[in-house]
């Protein structure tokens, strides 16, 4: 009996990402923290759709017994993963350009708005 352990694990991942965002100053590490939060949210969405004793929602060679897992959270998690990849690429591009212009990745030293 595992109870609500999967939800708790997802929330621990989100909390680790929050901790990274609060404490770290390197821009690459901030991107890693946002990625951790995304992973936690994606895992949470998929685990919300689980049905006890369920099989994958695919009819090819499906086992005859057991209910199917809810397919809509999986489809929307696919959308979420692709959007996460896109935003991560944009953030990394900004980090590269900031390092090229300022010579540092410290978030405290690049607070000025001068170009």
């Amino acid at each position: 009996m595992i109870g609500n352990l999967p939800f708790v694990v997802c929330m621990i991942l989100v909390a680790l990402g929050l901790w990274t965002l609060v404490t770290k100053r390197n821009l690459i590490k901030l991107v890693i923290g946002i990625g951790l939060i995304e992973s936690g949210v994606n895992l949470f969405l998929v685990s919300l759709g689980y049905v006890r004793g369920g099989i994958p929602p695919i009819y090819t060679y499906a086992p005859a017994d057991g209910p199917m897992v809810l397919p809509t959270p999986q489809a929307l998690t696919l959308t979420s993963i692709v959007i996460g990849v896109a935003t991560t690429a944009l953030m990394l591009a900004f980090a590269v350009v900031i390092y090229r212009h300022k010579g540092t990745l410290d978030a405290r030293k690049i607070r000025d708005l001068r170009g």
Partner: peptide, 9 residues
Amino acid sequence: AVALRPFGE
């Protein structure tokens, strides 16, 4: 997460 509905239902 703990107070959510049971996992799998």
